[in-house]
């Protein structure tokens, strides 16, 4: 059984667009730097699974959703601003 991670993150993308790729790269970089070993990233391609968009209230792409810990937080954009992402994910206090 997989170990319960402290952070469960979901990145919604729509195909391999430049923004999506940038976002995923950025996300992976920040997580490795700040949450090593405590995170799980799930990438959802809405072109493949469009029915999932409604559940997480996705309208912008890319969107990063922090499922755990609660409350749910959303960060939209290519995550190029590290500061904002970290604050948004509550990794670093604002």
């Amino acid at each position: 059984m997989e170990e319960e991670k402290k952070y469960e993150l979901r990145l919604y993308i729509a195909g391999k667009t430049a923004k999506s790729v940038t976002a995923l790269q950025n996300l992976k970089k920040y997580c490795e730097e700040h949450l090593k070993g405590q995170y799980k990233i799930e990438v959802i391609d809405l072109l493949v699974q469009p029915q999932l968009a409604e559940g997480d209230q996705i309208f912008a792409i890319p969107t990063l959703v922090r499922k755990v810990p609660e409350p749910i937080r959303k960060i939209i954009g290519d995550l190029s601003n590290e500061e904002k992402v970290l604050v948004g994910l509550d990794i670093r206090p604002a």
Binding site: L46, A60, I61, I75, D78, K84
Partner: peptide, 18 residues
């Protein structure tokens, strides 16, 4: 609930609507 960083578009909305 939403933080904006960097570039994005509303493709999600399009996909949802579609």
């Amino acid at each position: 609930e939403i933080e904006e960083t960097g570039e994005y578009d509303l493709e999600g909305l399009f996909i949802r609507l579609n």
